[in-house]
Design a protein around this nucleic acid. Structure first.
Length: 266
DNA sequence: GAGCCTGTTCGGGC
DNA sequence: GGCCCGAACAGGCT
């Protein structure tokens, strides 16, 4: 499920164990989701390390441990983070297990599209590549000016494909892009260059709104966004557009299944 | 058994 | 180089 807010929610689970010390109990070294896990570094840095803090950026997470170790997690399509009790038994899709005194941190991912990587910095400061990630849509730094530049750089793109670019709209995934476009009343297959000023202004506002509101609902406790959102209707077969009462469309745009309302979006 | 899928990356074609 | 598309990755669910 994991887009911006879901990622934030999963990270908050592990963050509840901040201050506790962990040792590396298991890593699925041969699995593709762990191909960036440095085993030697793991031995050295996570022998017994305290979880200092956790950060999210878009769909990425970074957990800082004492000793200058950083565990990077991407949940892919089906990944999850959990905190398990002492009677925990490792499941076949559990790829990273960090054992603490009272809790066990687990990264699970059946489809292996996610990623668990281990990094280190000598001074314990956050890695430079993390600090240099672009602003997220809900942040103050994501200005209308930046948004206009992103659009100007990708005039020829299909607007939905642009929204899905993680270097431009970090955290926005398939359902969020559809939600934003539906609120903007713009069809997902429109070209960026075809958007007029009213539509661009609305796209900016709705992008920020959907990201912020998703963080306030899903991001906090996985509670559903409001009933008025497309989110609540899009998954059902024969789902109805809350605006028009008509059946929602499903078409492939930018290689992804898109849900939209023909009578509502232009 | 077939089809579908909330993500990313890569190769081919224009 | 820009951009698009399709495939590949792999498993669970309908």
């Amino acid at each position: 499920m994991p887009e911006l807010a879901e990622v934030h929610f999963h990270a908050s689970r592990w963050k509840q164990s901040e201050g506790e010390a962990f040792r590396l109990a298991w890593v699925s070294g041969e699995k593709r989701c762990c191909r960036d896990w440095d085993r030697d570094l793991g031995e050295r840095l996570l022998g017994e390390a305290k979880l200092i803090s956790g950060y999210t950026h878009g769909k990425r997470m970074l957990f800082a441990f004492s000793g200058g170790a950083f565990v990077e997690i991407h949940l892919g399509m089906t990944g999850s983070l959990s905190v398990e009790q002492p009677d925990y038994k490792r499941g076949r899709h559990d790829h990273l297990v960090l054992q603490g005194k009272s809790s066990i941190l687990v990264f699970r991912d059946p489809r292996l599209f996610g990623k668990a990587a281990l990094h280190a910095t000598c001074d314990g400061e956050l890695p430079a590549w993390w600090m240099e990630l672009p602003p997220q849509p809900h942040e103050r730094e994501f200005t209308r000016g930046r948004f206009d530049e992103l659009l100007a750089r990708r005039k020829g793109s299909v607007v939905k494909a642009l929204l899905l670019r993680q270097d431009a709209f970090p955290g926005v995934g398939n359902w969020m892009a559809d939600e934003i476009l539906w609120r903007t009343r713009v069809r997902p297959d429109r070209r960026v260059a075809s958007l007029n000023e009213t539509e661009r202004a609305s796209l900016y506002q709705e992008t920020r709104y959907v990201c912020r509101e998703a963080l306030r609902t899903i991001g906090v406790d996985y509670r559903n966004p409001p009933e008025s959102w497309l989110f609540r209707h899009r998954w059902k077969a024969g789902g109805i557009c809350p605006k028009t009462g008509e059946v929602l469309q499903r078409t492939t745009v930018g290689g992804r299944t898109s849900c939209w309302s023909a009578g509502w979006q232009r």
